[in-house]
Design a protein around this nucleic acid. Structure first.
Length: 266
DNA sequence: TCATTAACCGTCG
DNA sequence: CGACGGTTAATGA
């Protein structure tokens, strides 16, 4: 069951310019002229979701492409024993699930709003139409899909790391790659609020284990948490502690000087 | 609701 | 055996 937000409520209408701005920042429309982006925005709708509201559920038929405009969204699988495995977190300008939007098969994960969130929706027929008009989009889609695949690869590599500390460390480094902003020499802040439960579900451990590992890292001065925002004070030491040495996945932490990460991509 | 700590317990190398 | 991590419970913010 998908509970959808109200289409174009008054609040959503007022937020439409914000949604268009988010679309313009999306890597999906890289290389398109502003009026071309505008024509895509004109074909899409804006939906509003409250914290905890489900955008779509794993197994739901995919009706189109969702792009986050404002707020935060978590994507996860519900695992048999009642726990949940986080597939990824989304920030504004990121697509929720490119794969299903383009192959039309059911959603691979459940998407839940973490904050009040505005999302752009483009139905599959309109998406197909837009692609026909702007073939440049295909290259952007492929790039986005490749990033989704990399993220999944990191997830499986993470699960294969033998102990919980390693998985937590790997999850932190990957989140830093995605949401990191420079916070001084060798330090990166994960600019995304995450509960301990979020971290635990991302790493595939219980919340207590996540707390144990994080407390330990905190005691060593490697990380520091403030109001659900984690700062890695010493990336190099976290890498050592996580034994990333021979990991072939691209967890390398980057942060641009102006504090922006590349356009919302996972 | 979220975070933390500690005690306890089963598994596995 | 002993490290590890899940379970449970208690407590504080």
């Amino acid at each position: 069951m998908t509970q959808q937000g109200l289409a174009y409520s008054g609040a959503a209408r007022r937020s439409a310019p914000t949604a268009r701005a988010a679309l313009a920042r999306s890597p999906l429309v890289d290389g398109l002229a502003p009026d071309e982006v505008e024509s895509i925005a004109a074909e899409s709708s804006v939906y509003w979701f409250e914290p905890g509201q489900v955008v779509f559920e794993e197994g739901d038929p995919c009706r189109g492409l969702w792009i986050l405009a404002t707020g935060r969204v978590r994507l996860h699988h519900d695992v048999s024993d009642g726990r949940s495995q986080v597939v990824g977190f989304r920030a504004p300008a990121a697509a929720l699930e490119l794969g299903s939007a383009f192959d039309g098969r059911p959603h691979l994960a459940t998407a839940v709003a973490l904050d009040d969130s505005a999302l752009l929706f483009l139905s599959r027929p309109r998406l197909a139409d837009v692609i026909r008009r702007y073939p440049q989009l295909l290259a952007n889609v492929i790039a986005g899909l490749c990033l989704e695949i990399r993220q999944r690869d990191i997830l499986t590599a993470n699960a294969a790391l033998k102990d919980a500390r390693g998985r937590i460390g790997c999850a932190l480094l990957q989140l830093a790659r995605q949401f990191g902003v420079a916070a001084g020499p060798g330090a990166v802040q994960i600019a995304y609020r995450l509960t301990r439960q979020d971290i635990a579900d991302r790493a595939g451990v219980t919340i207590e284990t996540a707390i144990r590992a994080l407390s330990e890292l905190q005691r060593k001065g490697i990380v520091q948490t403030d109001a659900q925002v984690i700062e890695i004070r010493d990336v190099a030491r976290l890498r050592v502690a996580t034994e990333c040495g021979d990991c072939q996945f691209d967890c390398s932490v980057f942060a641009t000087p102006n504090g922006k990460h590349p356009a919302g991509h996972p």
